[in-house]
Design a protein around this nucleic acid. Sequence first.
DNA 1: CGCCGCAATTTGATATATCGAATTTCTGGA
DNA 2: TCCAGAAATTCGATATATCAAATTGCGGCG
Lengths: 239, 239
Amino acid sequence: MTLIEQSPINDMLTRGETLGGQVYRWLANAITAGSYSPKERINIRRLADELRSSVTPVREAVLRLVAEGVLETTDTGAIIVPERTQGEIQEIFEVRSALEGEMALAAAPNITDEDVKNLGSIQSSFLDALDQSDYREVLKLNAIFHFSIYKRANLPLRLKIVETLWLRIGPTLRYMYPILHKGRSDHRRHENIIEAAASRDPNALRSAILLDLASSQAALHQYLQDHSVLPRRRSRRNG
Amino acid sequence: MTLIEQSPINDMLTRGETLGGQVYRWLANAITAGSYSPKERINIRRLADELRSSVTPVREAVLRLVAEGVLETTDTGAIIVPERTQGEIQEIFEVRSALEGEMALAAAPNITDEDVKNLGSIQSSFLDALDQSDYREVLKLNAIFHFSIYKRANLPLRLKIVETLWLRIGPTLRYMYPILHKGRSDHRRHENIIEAAASRDPNALRSAILLDLASSQAALHQYLQDHSVLPRRRSRRNG
DNA sequence: CGCCGCAATTTGATATATCGAATTTCTGGA
DNA sequence: TCCAGAAATTCGATATATCAAATTGCGGCG
C-alpha cells in the first residue's frame, strides 16, 4: 500500500517505515486535525479497506493509540474515541503546563532566527485558516506552531509524552476554535509567543506558552459548561 | 492459554482480559523485576512458545511496550531492550521527580491507617529480600511500595505516565540495588516515607519521595560511571 | 589464524481464515 | 406503534501461512 502524509506531531520515521507505523501516523494526523469526534467508533476492517491495507497493520496502529490513552476499548471490546471528562481535561492541562513550560524554558536559548521566521509564517497561515473557518487546518497549524518550539528543547522524553497528551485532547479540541473564533482574542496569544521566542527570554517564552494553554483550557471549559453531559438535556439538532 | 500473574505496576484489567493484555502484564512484570537486561533481544516466536500463545498477542504486547518507549526496534527491525544513556536516565528522573512529587502531595491527605500498616509490611518484606540479595523481589517490592502511595493521589494520567517511566528504567535498575546494598543506607529512605505518610504531611511526603528518587539516581549514576561505555574497555568476564 | 562471502536459518511484518461474542436487523405479537 | 426475541451480520481477537530482509554458520581463501 501507499499511505504517505506527515503528521505535524509525529514526524519521525519515514524511510523503510512499517505499514503499521504509517497507519499510526495517518491516524495521529487525523486526530490532530480534529477529524475524529468523541464517542465515534473505530472500525478496523473499514480502516484497512480505506487505507488499502489489511487488518494487521491497522490493528497494530489502533492498539498503539489505545495504549497511549488516545483511544479506548469499551467493556465489550469496541474501540472508540473517548469522551473526556472535565477531570481528565483538567489533568491533561496540568501535566501539559508542567512539561510544556519546562520545554519552553529549555528551548528559548536554542531558538534560531529561522525558527522565528518560521513561526511567523506558520502564524500567518494559521490566521488565514481561522478566517476561512478551516478548523482542520487551524488545529494542524496550531500543533505545528507549538511543536516547532518544543523541538528546540532537546527534551525527547517530555516531547513524546506531550505528543500523546495532544492526541488525547485532539478529538475534544475540535470544539474549541469555533468558540475562540467568536472572541477573536487568539492572535495576541501566538504573537506573544513569537515575541518571546525572538527575545530568547526563557521565562517570557514559558509564560507566553502557559497563557496560551490557559486560554485553550478556558475555552474548552466553557464548551463543556454549555454542552455539559449533565442529567437530561439533549442537543437540538441531530436529535 | 493461561498466563495469570499480576504486575505490581499494572494491576488493572483481569476479568475477560485479552491475551495480548495478559502478555503485556507478564512482560511488564518481568521488566519491573529486572528480568530483562539492556541490549537483550526479544524474540516474538520464542515468547509465544514459552507463554503457550501465538505470535499475534505477543507481538501486540511487545509493540505496546515499544510504543511506550520501554522496548525499541533497531534500524533493522529487531526488538531489543534499550540501553539507557546518561541523558535519558537524567530526563526520566527529572520527569519522575515532577510527577511523583505531585502525586505524593495529592496522596498525603488520602492515606489511610491501613495504607500505613501495609507500607510497613511491604518494607519489612523489602528488607528481607534485600538481606537475601533477592533483587528480583526487591525491585518488585520497591515498585509496590511506591505505587501503593501514588494510587491514593487519584491522578490517573500522572500515574499511567509514571508507570511507563518505571518500565523504561526497569532494565537499568537491576544494577542499582547491588550497589546500594553495600552502602546499606536504604532503610532510612523508605522509613522516612512511611513516617511522612503516617503524618499525612504533604510536603514531608513529597520530600521523602524525592529524596528516595535522588538516591536511586545517584546510585545509577555511580554504576554508569564505573561501567561507562566509554571508548574501549571491556568486561572482564563473559568477554 | 583471521577474514570474506554464500547458503541455510531465523525473524519481524503482513495478509488472511476462523471463532465466539456483540450488534444489528428482522419478525411476529400485543 | 412498540417491543421482545431470534436470526443474520459485523466485529475484534487469535492462530497461522507466507514473504523479504536480517542473522548466523560454514567453508575456503589469503
